[in-house]
């Protein structure tokens, strides 16, 4: 019976395609404060995730239990709450559909980037990560330069090529919202909302690993009166 279970789990782990949906959603106020949201939706692959979670190990690495994942998420939550300039931290996880939603308010983009850097360093046992020095959000009042953090590019290159192909099934959506209307933007793949106060860029995670700069954008805002 044990082997039958293993067989079913094994086949499930292989057969289901990897399908991940990510939204990063930045709301930027004129005074430099704002809200950052990061949502991950794995509900299309819940059979696969359940089968992986039921295994002891995958590809020679131990598979964490739901309890361990919860512990980790709670710890990240607590760490973020203690970061300077970061408030209203919320991290919710739906373990039935595997939808994870993170949200926080920030006092400035510099403090948001600094908090993320601190967390990343802490997860890397305090060892330096040069890619974290890269400023991926620069706001001048009427102009926002947005790019993908270099650490993301570095990490994506560590994904095995066979696994990277599975990311073609997913989607990555980047949304930036402002109080003022958008007058111009550099990335011609971007789409502006009807109210002209939000701009969206979409791709699939695979393309993003191949060409991380495809979500780079400089957005110009209408000057306030």
């Amino acid at each position: 019976m044990k082997y039958l279970r293993v067989l079913i789990l094994a086949l499930s782990a292989l057969s289901a395609t990897g399908c991940i949906e990510i939204i990063d959603d930045l709301t930027l106020n004129m005074d430099g404060t704002g809200t950052f949201k990061y949502n991950i939706n794995l509900s299309s692959s819940k059979v696969k995730i359940n089968s992986i979670l039921a295994l002891d190990s995958l590809d020679g690495k131990r598979v964490p239990s739901i309890g361990e994942i919860k512990q980790k998420i709670n710890r990240l939550n607590e760490q973020l709450k203690s970061e300077s300039g970061i408030s209203n931290v919320s991290l919710t996880a739906d373990y039935t559909n595997y939808v994870f939603k993170f949200s926080c308010d920030f006092a400035s983009l510099a403090e948001l980037q600094s908090a993320i850097k601190t967390i990343a360093l802490s997860e890397n046992s305090g060892k330096a990560i040069p890619e974290l020095d890269h400023k991926w959000l620069i706001f001048s009042g009427t102009q926002l330069n947005r790019s993908v953090p270099e650490i993301t590019i570095k990490k994506s290159k560590e994904i095995k090529s066979a696994d990277r192909l599975l990311l073609k099934e997913g989607s990555y959506t980047s949304i930036t919202r402002f109080e003022l209307e958008i007058v111009k933007f550099d990335n011609d793949q971007a789409k502006v909302s009807a109210n002209k106060k939000a701009i969206m860029l979409r791709t699939d995670p695979y393309s993003l690993t191949q060409n991380p700069s495809q979500l780079d954008n400089t957005i110009y805002l209408k000057k306030s009166e």
Binding site: T17, I23, N41, S193, N195, K197
Partner: peptide, 30 residues
């Protein structure tokens, strides 16, 4: 047959809401 969550966007603001819809996933049959 399974279900999945999708995010439905509003074109006016790009706000989005969650929706549960039907889905299909591969499963070994025993």
């Amino acid at each position: 047959q399974t279900t999945k969550i999708i995010w439905d966007y509003d074109d006016e603001t790009f706000d989005y809401i969650e929706k549960e819809v039907g889905a299909e996933e591969d499963m070994p049959i025993f």
